[in-house]
Design a protein around this nucleic acid. Structure first.
Lengths: 162, 162
DNA sequence: ATGAATGCAAACCCTTTGCAAACCC
DNA sequence: GGGTTTGCAAAGGGTTTGCATTCAT
């Protein structure tokens, strides 16, 4: 009865445990405290399927009843989750709100976004990664990250337009 | 005594005239009107050296005295300037405000941003452009644009850190 | 016990919108 | 003249902050 698909693997209790462990380390290093609310936020962020923004995550947490997490609290927690590598900012080109996605134990990728339907495809290309490093070097920059989104029209929407 | 450098070439009166002409065409096609305020906005946007956000451009216009341009007016005009290819959105990763840069008669480029000092370098790489098209095709997407910013530490800031 | 974390509401900031007056065509 | 544009101020929407209370250590 236990469905063992991609999602459940990624969200296995072991993975979450490791993430919480990492989170505790970051908190400890900064003399901050692990709390039940923060743990709930980490779990919710990792279990969330896809990209989310803060208000959305807060809604999910509140819907679970029991432990609410005020929006302000989630906002305050996000920088810590980012520092711990639990989540990372994503989808800059979509709307006003800052969006995030789970990052813990997930390989790096960028996004291909359909400007018609909003559909998102993740992609990874090693040549592209290398090329970016080369370009940064060309200008003497030490590359630390990048924002890269390809915007276009997905196969489904292309069919509809015809 | 007239200094003829890169900037003055780009902002020659002829270029501005062509931009205004293009802008008039866009307005005409939509049955909208050219106004002195809109013309001032186009001029200010093209003459602005570097990247700017709306409030900043409004400040510049108001500082010129004479014809003020209310912030709301500039906000309302920007989509038209984008449509006319006078300006384009830029520097998504910097702050909350939407930033723009002059785009008229300027070749496409992406940005390399120093996360320490905020310095920006423009770059262009044809291989990179092609690679993006290839990746989009790989997923059946029709590529219409992209957001690409390389984040890193510029040569100057790297020296300081040592 | 002591300082950090939380919830709530107010404050902020950028952006959008409603409306009467000014303006273009 | 008739509809568009503008400026102003108010409204929106996301994010941050102040503060009293609760909580972790």
């Amino acid at each position: 009865m236990a469905h063992v698909g991609k999602a459940s693997c990624l969200n296995s209790e072991e993975r979450i445990a490791r993430a919480l462990e990492r989170f505790r380390e970051v908190l400890y290093a900064r003399e901050l405290r692990m709390t039940s609310v923060r743990e709930a936020i980490v779990r919710a962020a990792l279990e969330y399927d896809g990209h989310f923004h803060v208000q959305e995550l807060a809604r999910v947490l509140q819907a679970r009843g029991l432990r609410d997490a005020a929006v302000a609290t989630v906002y305050r927690a996000m920088p810590l989750l980012v520092e711990a590598g639990i989540v990372q900012p994503a989808l800059v080109s979509a709307g006003d709100e800052q969006r995030y996605e789970a990052a813990f134990e997930r390989p790096h990728h960028d996004h291909l976004v359909c400007t018609q339907c909003g559909g998102v495809v993740e992609f990874h290309d090693e040549v592209l990664e290398t090329l970016q490093r080369v370009i940064a070097e060309r200008y003497g920059y030490e590359l630390t990250g990048h924002v890269h989104e390809l915007l276009g029209c997905c196969p489904k929407c292309r069919k509809k337009k015809r």
